[in-house]
């Protein structure tokens, strides 16, 4: 095995693609998943806007999406992806299925995080004359911030995993590179380098996530 004729340029480009996919998809996942999670929380049993039908339907749809393996979701979603983004290839083509794949997962984590907020705090906020919106944004979300940051960290790591998978069907990035060179052309060293970079990447996400969680924990 030799590392001399590695295509560092290709690896750099693939890393940039992975970063762009994870970053973009994470941003959109949070933007989509957070409101969904809040909705799940609010409509849940014994919660502020208890609504069994709304909760049940939303919960059902999210669970269905979550039970489809991501690689299959990628393929099934292709026509929709083309409709939404104009292409099923490259970063643009892959972010849509990534968000569809991870937003339900993130929404569940948000629901759990919000449910863990002490009911007494919600009650105190309402007793002080806060509206439900004020209670959510000024009391519940800030109280849940450490758990939400932990949820974002986990979701980012799942996204790293999914981007590698979506590389296989033309998404690009480190996963794509590893499969193309390592699997199809037997250049194991490229695969190893890609995997090593992914490991470091995931470790970095976890470590910075942990630091943020600790920083905002006031309990």
């Amino acid at each position: 095995m030799s590392f001399e004729n590695l295509y560092w340029g290709d690896i750099g480009a693939a890393l940039a693609q992975t970063l762009a996919m994870v970053g973009g998809a994470l941003l959109l996942t949070v933007l989509v998943g957070l409101p969904l999670g809040i909705l799940l929380f609010l409509t849940g049993r014994q919660q502020l806007f208890q609504a069994p039908v709304a909760y049940g339907s939303l919960s059902f749809v999210l669970s269905i999406i979550r039970s489809v393996p991501f690689i299959i979701l990628l393929i099934v979603l292709m026509p929709v992806t083309v409709l939404v983004t104009g292409t099923s290839l490259g970063i643009r083509g892959v972010i849509f299925p990534l968000v569809v794949g991870t937003a339900p997962f993130f929404a569940r984590l948000v629901e759990t995080a919000l449910r863990e907020v002490d009911r007494g705090i919600i009650e105190a906020s309402l007793a002080m004359g806060a509206s439900t919106t004020q209670t959510i944004f000024r009391a519940v979300l800030p109280e849940a911030l450490p758990s939400l940051l932990a949820a974002i960290t986990v979701t980012a790591i799942v996204l790293v995993d999914y981007t590698a998978m979506s590389g296989a069907i033309g998404g690009g990035g480190l996963g794509d590179l590893a499969i193309r060179y390592g699997y199809h052309r037997f250049q194991t060293e490229i695969m190893l380098v890609c995997v090593a970079i992914l490991i470091v990447f995931v470790q970095l996400i976890q470590a910075s996530g942990n630091r943020l969680v600790t920083h905002f924990s006031r309990k």
């Binding site: 002490d118 007494g120 705090i121 009650e123 105190a124 309402l126 007793a127 002080m128 004359g129 806060a130 509206s131 009391a139 800030p142 109280e143 911030l145 905002f216 006031r218 309990k219």
Partner: peptide, 21 residues
């Protein structure tokens, strides 16, 4: 209702303070 609640303060057994503030 919110005006009414503002005119009535409430103190709780387990304090119910915002831990993030």
């Amino acid at each position: 209702l919110r005006d009414l609640r503002r005119s009535i303060g409430m103190v709780f057994q387990h304090f119910n303070l915002l831990s993030a503030r």
